[in-house]
Amino acid sequence: MSETLVTGLVVFVLASFVGFEIINKVPPTLHTPLMSGANAISGIAVVGAILAGGAAHLNGPTILGLVAIVLAMVNVVGGFWVTDRMLQMFKK
């Protein structure tokens, strides 16, 4: 395995543990917002999409990247916004 892949695995495993630790004991009230907020974060694929879609030549791979940017941004903006809308409603 290449160095990059190993580093990636290390980061992945550690980040997963961090995730498990910080989300421990979430009250049911926040299950939906947690899910939609986390969902917005999964739109981080937009970063990869920008790298793929930002190339100088407009060819197949670049077009895939640009399509991915649109989809990921719907996920990011829609996800964060709708989460905020929900959280706004929760009051004591």
Partner: peptide, 10 residues
């Protein structure tokens, strides 16, 4: 990798 792993865990 990090962001994806966090979402995967949640």
């Amino acid at each position: 990798v990090i962001a994806g792993a966090l979402v995967g865990a949640s």
